[in-house]
Amino acid sequence: MVDRLTSPRFLRAVLPAASFAILLIAIFYLKPRTMSYFGLNLMLQYTVPIALATIAQMFIITVNDLDLSIGPFVGLTACIGATWLADTPLLGILALAGCVAAYAALGALIHWRNLPSIVVTLGMSFVWLGIAVLILPTPGGTAPGWVKWLMGVKTPVVPFPIVATVVIGLVVHLLLMRSSYGAVLRGAGGNPRAIGRAGWSLLKTKMVMFGAAGFFGVLSGLSLIGLTSAADAHIADRYTLYAIAGVILGGGEFVGGRVSPIGAVIGAMTLTLTGSFLTFLKISPDWQIGAQGGILIIVLALRALINRREGLV
């Protein structure tokens, strides 16, 4: 029993949830008032868009790539959502579908030319930003009513952001971890050659994963304007970093197809909480990003420690 509880696998799996729980307890201790429906709702408000962006990044990381453009992409979809989707829904839907298709095409390009994803996505981040600026030159626009309504839903007992985040995590878990094609997709990250030898198309797996990332990027943008009601091309620039950090905090590995959707959304929640935690500690907002970097490094250090122990076993 003790063996099982101290096994590297178990520790690795528990790390994300444990970091979240510790952070939450610390916050409750500092500000007991946050332990309420309203308090949690306020603290975790922005979890939904961040969790969706994290899931998008997770799809890319599953196939051993990295997306440095997810932030600007979320910004672009937010801009489309607050303008075209609100004014001429059909055009908006087409544009958003086009965004998803563009992501799938990027996956195909990266596979076809064997390109380093970070350079390609870094370049694309400018393209997304440029299009967003063209669509919405100055901050503004309005989110469609139904998006605002959806994001403002009051769920009983447990606040909406928590319910929504858990639902997102479960749905993606079903799709990626429980479906039969999901196994192939993850396998393409674990041992691409084996998947190729078993007769699967690696081009298709890459396109599916990038397409899925694009789809969740769109959802992230829409949920974001549901909260802010207006958009701006730069609204989600920080999401690139949040998304990578979220995946890693959630126990995902950079290579080898070892990811966890549940972990990723927990990672996103942890990240959102850090902000409140630092505020309650009266640490200046200057250290916000730094603290996130620090947490990232600590988690990676812990994981390196666990892995090293595994090497000794």
Binding site: G123, S125, F126
Partner: peptide, 13 residues
Amino acid sequence: AGIRLILTGLIIV
């Protein structure tokens, strides 16, 4: 500015 950004990105890609 938008076109400028797009072109910069596309050239790199």
